[in-house]
Amino acid sequence: MANHKSSEKRIRQTKTKTLHNKYYAKTMRNAVRKLRATTDKAEATEMLPKVQKMLDKLAKQNIIHKNKAANIKSSIALHINSL
């Protein structure tokens, strides 16, 4: 249990931020999953900029690591090129 008011506040803030980050990380994972499941090249090409933008924003906000964003962007680009 927290012994100070500041640590109690920090616990509340961390809980709120964790929920916020989990929501956006899960949204990103679902978008990437949907893109990888796509077999139509035109549809996948249309989705690519939106997913890349989402990945860049999350990396900028430190919700995901910048290298993870780069790796995902690279792998989905390879997927689209192989269609």
Rank of each mutant, 00 (worst) to 15 (best):
K5R: 12
S6Q: 13
S6P: 12
S7A: 14
S7H: 11
S7K: 10
K9T: 14
K9Q: 13
K9F: 12
R10Q: 10
R10G: 05
I11K: 09
I11C: 10
R12I: 15
Q13P: 08
Q13F: 06
Q13H: 08
Q13K: 08
Q13M: 06
T14C: 08
T14L: 10
T14Q: 10
T14H: 08
K15S: 12
K15D: 05
T16V: 10
T16H: 15
K17D: 05
K17H: 09
K17P: 05
T18S: 07
T18A: 07
L19C: 06
H20W: 13
H20Y: 13
H20V: 01
H20Q: 10
N21A: 03
N21P: 07
N21G: 05
K22A: 14
K22S: 13
Y23H: 08
Y24E: 11
Y24W: 13
A25D: 05
K26P: 04
T27L: 12
T27N: 09
M28H: 02
R29W: 04
R29F: 03
N30G: 04
N30D: 05
V32R: 01
V32H: 01
V32S: 01
K34Q: 09
K34Y: 09
K34S: 07
L35K: 11
R36P: 01
A37M: 12
A37P: 02
T38Q: 11
T38L: 03
T38V: 03
D40W: 01
D40Q: 02
D40E: 05
D40I: 07
K41L: 03
A42I: 09
A44F: 00
A44K: 00
T45F: 03
M47S: 09
L48G: 04
P49A: 04
P49T: 02
K50N: 11
K50M: 11
K50T: 06
K50V: 05
V51H: 06
V51Q: 04
V51P: 06
Q52D: 07
Q52W: 04
Q52H: 05
Q52I: 08
K53E: 08
M54H: 04
L55R: 02
L58H: 03
A59N: 01
A59G: 04
K60G: 14
K60T: 10
Q61H: 10
Q61S: 09
N62C: 06
I63L: 02
I63W: 03
I64M: 05
I64N: 02
H65D: 10
K66Q: 15
K66H: 15
K66Y: 15
K66W: 14
K68S: 08
K68R: 13
K68I: 00
A69Y: 09
A69V: 01
N71L: 12
N71A: 14
I72E: 01
I72N: 01
I72H: 00
K73N: 01
K73D: 02
K73C: 02
K73Y: 00
S74G: 14
S75D: 15
L78F: 15
L78N: 15
L78M: 13
L78K: 15
H79D: 12
H79K: 12
H79P: 13
H79S: 13
N81Y: 15
N81L: 15
S82T: 07
